[in-house]
Design a protein around this nucleic acid. Structure first.
Lengths: 207, 207
DNA sequence: CCGTCAAGAACGGTCGTTCGCTTTACAGTG
DNA sequence: CACTGTAAAGCGAACGACCGTTCTTGACGG
């Protein structure tokens, strides 16, 4: 019945990535809403029909891109926890910032620009929020765990709230990304060094 | 000859504010680009022609709104500096977060939602960036000054970079705003308390 | 020769903005 | 204080452009 003329699945995935890469570049440059599908389609090198074969709507394309960007970052943080190393809070925050800086700027497009656009989009687009929320919760969960261990080691008061301690660590990452993009004069290494200074003050039982 | 029919200037300003208030509410709810002028016009209770009498374009309206929101916050930070009090870095950061939390949520619309939208918009709209950049530079300047005084008081190493120390403090504010909106489980008082814990560790020469 | 993939013209709808008209409110006048 | 001239203030239908999406058509491989 089916004459099944199938293109190798790897080629389909490559096409999908081709669209995602092109759309990521355009969205990073011009935001989600201000970028038209015609722009994305032209950048992808394909046709409108082809793009709509792989993504049913612009919203689905946006969600897929946000998922790829914040999902990759969340995966890195999860890996840090599974490695089961127990760095100082100071070291954990500084290393996380350096990791995010490297992760977002290694490719041809600055993925942190997409992340900032995703923040705004998540406030109005439930589909994007549903992607962003668990990803950032995972990342913050890493810091919350670091905070708990810090409490166990006597670096933080035992009665402090680990969730909010973790939230302040998470802020160091968000704030770095934002200030680097908006103000342009924040250097990853210098920022990480400053973090090590400000977080190093807490008393430690191990040294 | 001229019957100069002038409406009192206060009435003109009131109309302008009426438009700004309505547009702020719509933009806070739906973002700048995804909100149409028709939506703004309907919310303002005026007509298209009237709105376009006070603002020459949507971009000008957006810039005016962003200016009002981030400008008000920047003014508060400038005032803190002029008061010439020299709080601990810990106290300065915690108080700043509580001030921003109160400032953005006191009115009928959450202004921090507009701020997050402005971050994304500033990445693609030079006019918005030109408004956002100096405002946030002013706010960070407050923290940089706090960092300098902290160094003078021996709370930070003398060879640390005050700009990046200030940047990490600024991150505490950005990160609070973002996590409260995206994750929804960050409490201002508890977050400020956590900040006081984590920043209190640095050695002090005065106590 | 069937089914898949890609192409791109075309679609209805919505966008930001304009413009000609009406209404409003005040200064001058007697 | 009533009247009137005049320009600002307001209105809203209408505009061209562009939006995201669909659909017809053709090419190609099994």
């Amino acid at each position: 019945m089916d004459g099944v003329p199938r293109v190798p699945e790897s080629h389909l995935a490559a096409r999908r990535d081709q669209i995602l890469d092109a759309a990521t570049a355009r969205f990073a440059a011009n935001g989600f809403q201000a970028t038209g599908m015609a722009d994305v389609i032209a950048a992808s090198g394909l046709s409108a029909g082809a793009v709509y074969r792989y993504f049913r709507s612009k919203d689905e394309l946006i969600a897929a891109i946000v998922e790829r960007v914040v999902g990759a970052a969340a995966a890195r943080f999860e890996q840090l926890l599974e490695d089961d190393a127990a760095p100082d809070p100071a070291e954990a925050v500084a290393a996380a910032v350096e990791m995010v800086a490297e992760l977002t700027t290694r490719g041809p497009v600055d993925l942190s620009r997409v992340a900032v656009q995703a923040w705004g989009e998540a406030l109005r687009n439930p589909g994007v929020h549903a992607v962003v929320d668990p990803a950032y919760r995972t990342m913050r969960g890493y810091f919350v765990e670091i905070a708990r261990r810090g409490q166990a080691a006597g670096r933080f008061p035992a009665d402090a709230d680990p969730l909010h301690l973790g939230a302040t660590m998470m802020s160091s990452v968000f704030g770095f990304v934002l200030q680097r993009l908006l103000l342009g004069d924040v250097d990853p290494a210098a920022y990480a060094a400053a973090l090590r200074v400000t977080w190093a003050g807490a008393p430690s039982t191990t040294g």
